[in-house]
Computed example of a mutant assay.
Amino acid sequence: MAQHWTHRGGGWLPPRSPRPGVIPLRPLGPRDILDGTLATLGRYGGRLLGALLLGQLGGLLLLAAVAGAATLASLTRTAGSRVFVYTLAPALALFLLFCRALATALAAALLRPAVLGRPVTTLGLLRAAAPRIPAVSGARLLALLAAAGPGAAALGAGLPPLALLPLAPVALWLWVLFALAPTAAGYEGLGPVAALRRSARLVRGAWWRTFAITVPAGALALGAAYAVPLRFGVLGALFAPALLLTVPQPASGLLYMDRLLRSEPGITAG
């Protein structure tokens, strides 16, 4: 390996890892992931947010059509409030799932250009992410079912909430174990089940590290979503939900890349 001379105290040091994009191409420390997340948002945040809002527009139009149909149906004497329960509420839940999957798929599509320092466009990012949305949605749903399913089933069986406390650590452990599954589905094009297996392999031996990076990323998103409306008023409030979806995704993507570089040292982003 080539070496270079340093003037700080003298001596030979190994060369620095190449950094064509937002992170150095080596296993990452928490500081690298934080710096890379901020660099990604600074360099690509506008295009990422634009692609997210543009992709949500189609979902909003469909949701508006469903809401209109539900409103018309509710005017009849036979439908009543059940129209909201059986039509509009599921449509809203699907829309929220779509938005979350879209944000993850966009971040996964952005990961390779961001790591390699390549330019992207809003429409190009959206075109790259669109085919990955079903697999990302499936991986997210399966991860949610694995973590929350046993507790939900116990509640449905009539057990009191306090009786579910022993399940809380298991749910948290599973949530972190499968935290990288949506990104794996988007980045590697894996199916939902294969993405969960991939996440479990990558997180194994690094559960606490994954937890310690994932939770602050969510807290950063909450802070941004709270601060922007205070600073920009109504306009900021309109963008707050998009910030909640957008801000944590680069951190999850870089954590995923870190786990790839550690578990498969020969892998490259290209």
Rank of each mutant, 00 (worst) to 15 (best):
A225Q: 09
G191K: 04
G191S: 09
A251F: 01
A221S: 09
L244Q: 02
Q249E: 15
A240Q: 00
L261A: 14
A200G: 09
G186L: 11
A219W: 13
D258R: 05
A242D: 02
Y187D: 14
R259G: 05
I213P: 01
L243A: 02
W207V: 02
R209N: 03
R204A: 14
A185L: 07
R259N: 01
V193E: 12
L254D: 06
L190R: 13
R231N: 00
V203R: 10
R198N: 11
L230E: 13
A185H: 10
G218S: 10
D258C: 05
A194N: 09
R259M: 11
Y256M: 07
A225K: 08
P216K: 10
A227M: 05
A217I: 01
G205D: 10
A184S: 13
P216M: 09
L196F: 06
A225F: 05
L190W: 06
R197P: 03
G233Y: 08
Y226A: 15
A224T: 11
P248D: 11
P229G: 08
G189F: 09
P192N: 02
V247N: 00
T210G: 14
R204G: 10
A206P: 05
L230M: 14
A224Y: 02
V203K: 10
R198H: 15
T214W: 03
L222H: 07
L202Y: 07
P248W: 04
V193S: 09
F239C: 12
L190E: 03
A237R: 12
R201T: 15
R262L: 14
R209P: 01
A242V: 00
W207G: 06
E188N: 06
L196P: 09
V193D: 04
V228R: 05
P216I: 08
P250K: 11
A237L: 15
V193I: 13
L220S: 10
G236W: 00
R204P: 02
L196D: 11
A219H: 03
A195G: 07
R198P: 08
